[in-house]
Each structure stands twice: as structure tokens, then as C-alpha cells.
Design a protein around this nucleic acid. Structure first.
Lengths: 151, 151
DNA sequence: ATGCTAATTGATACTTGATATCAATTGATA
DNA sequence: TATCAATTGATATCAAGTATCAATTAGCAT
């Protein structure tokens, strides 16, 4: 989605856990390798459903470790559970389809430049930012076009 | 906070409900007038606590109506319940203090201009956007400065 | 003003998302 | 291999929010 690069995913999520001094367990291997297989953003419950052999608590705990390690980014969804996606690039923002909920990523230097100019207008120290663009994605657009005659 | 204007709040939230064909009830009056008194962003639970005479369900329902009417904006908080603030200006963004959670508002034309240029790079139709700036607010900065000697 | 009726209320039960508990299990090291 | 702390996962619990539904009430017609 957007200008999503096709760079091969060499992320080894389990290494991110390793680096934090956490043990290599079969449960963690199952969770991380499943996440690596998922191309879209996912919810914790989705992962639980897809990994019935791993306890719910462990799935949630592992996700939390990965977020703490910076290997996953957690993005809040209005009216729903947060979604997670692999933090492939250092800093990026998200597109969220307001119809189907599909999440994409983008990067734009101007966004970062704007942040600097905003610094002068805002009281306090800026420590980070998040931008979300709500879209109607191409497949939803196509779907609504083909079903338009229905009224 | 930020460049918060001191413009008198002439918002009459209950009118927003009126406009949607909803009845003027004492419960709704209690909820809306309480919201108008709160200067900061608030959570639904906070409102329930402050209005023990109004049922929880009614508080949540009224908030939902106000959001639907565009009179409140709902902003997602990572690791917590969403906060609501009166939509005083047509379009704006938020600053969130990552220490104390205080929410402020700002407006910057460049942000809107960037959106237009992003339109070319993003697949699908842009239907909206949201930007949040994470800050350490001045009072938290002051607090940490005065306690700095502690080590 | 009075009665009528549909909208509204709120106590309660429930749903969903997520965390705490803790006995049983397991990985890493000596 | 023995040891022991880290980890697991079933279960209970918590928190945020919604559905239910009998009782109440606002707004209208008269």
C-alpha cells in the first residue's frame, strides 16, 4: 500500500527479544514467526485465533515485549482494538482505510520538516509525533463503484 | 496550552443534540454543561465519576451523540481510554504530554498544505487525517527541573 | 392543563480487550 | 544432568463500553 517498498523482510523478531535478554522459547518462536508471515497490520486477538496452541496471555506478553523493543509499532484504532505492524522503517506514518480498516505505511520528508517549524509555536518540548491519514483504499473504491447501481 | 485562544466558549453542546432531533432532558443537560465546564480533554469514566446522578449508559450515549454531531472530537490514547474535547475550531490537531497526559490543541496551515501534496503519493482517496504531537509540557519540564538535584 | 406515546433513562448483565495470579513447565547455565 | 529462575497458560479478574428492558419523561395534540 502507498509506496510500500518490496525490500526483503530480514527482520528477525525473535532477535529483538534476544537482545532484551529474553529466552528463546517455542511459544515466542511461534508468535514471532507468525507475525513475520502476516503482511498486514494485525490485532492481538487475531494472533490468538491464529495460534490456538499459544496461550492468550503469552501472545499479549510477547506483543508487549516487541513493542517495548521497538520491533512492532502499536497504532490506536478508534472504536476497536489497536493494531500492530512490524516497524520496518525507522520512522513512518500510517494510512487507515475508513471502510475496511486496512493499514498502510508512508514516509514523507515534508511531514518531518513541518514538525520543526511547529516546534516554535508549541509550548513544551516535542518528543515525538504521529500522523494518520484516513483513506478509502483502492479496493474499497472499486467495490463501491461496481456496486453503485444497487442504489 | 499551545496557542489556546481565550475566545469565550459560546458552544452550546445541548444545541448540537437539539439539531439532531434529540430531546432536551435533564440528564443530557447535566452531561453537556459539565463538559462545557471542563477546560481539558476528559474521559468518559471521568465524566461518570463527576456526574454520579447520571447513569453510566446515558453518559456514554450522550458522548457518542456529541461525537456523531461533530461537537466533540474523540482522540485515541495509547494504553488507555480515549479522551474527548470540545471541537471548538473547525479543524485542528492535538498535543499530548507524554508525562502527565495533558491534551492541547493547535492549528497550522502547513500541516494542511502537506496533506495536499501527500495526496499524490497515496493510493486511494484521502478522507481525513489526524496528527498528534507528543510533548513534555511546560509544567512537567518545570517539575523535572526543580527535582533534578535529586539524582 | 391533561393525557398520550415514543424517546429516554439507568440498573443490570454482558461483551471485549487486556492484565494478574500462580502452579506447572522449560531453557540456559554450571 | 541437576538446578533454578524465567516462562507458560488456565483461570480469575479488571476495565471500557454496549445491550436489555421496565420505568420514567419530554413534547405534542387536544
Amino acid at each position: 500500500m502507498a509506496t510500500a517498498t518490496t525490500e526483503s523482510i530480514s527482520v528477525n523478531l525473535i532477535n529483538a527479544l534476544d537482545d532484551r535478554g529474553l529466552r528463546r522459547t517455542s511459544a515466542r518462536a511461534a508468535v514471532t514467526s507468525r507475525i513475520e508471515q502476516i503482511s498486514d497490520a494485525f490485532t492481538a486477538e487475531q494472533l490468538c485465533r491464529e495460534l490456538p496452541g499459544v496461550g492468550r496471555a503469552t501472545v499479549y506478553r510477547t506483543i508487549r515485549h516487541l513493542v517495548d523493543a521497538g520491533a512492532l509499532c502499536k497504532l490506536p484504532i478508534l472504536d476497536g482494538a489497536p493494531k500492530y505492524s512490524i516497524a520496518r522503517v525507522e520512522h513512518h506514518h500510517h494510512t487507515i482505510c475508513s471502510r475496511c480498516g486496512a493499514v498502510g505505511e508512508f514516509r514523507h520528508s515534508t511531514v518531518e520538516r513541518v514538525m520543526r517549524s511547529l516546534g516554535k509555536e508549541i509550548d513544551g518540548d516535542i518528543v515525538g509525533h504521529r500522523m494518520e491519514i484516513f483513506i478509502t483504499c483502492n479496493s474499497c473504491l472499486a467495490a463501491s463503484r461496481s456496486g453503485e447501481s444497487g442504489g
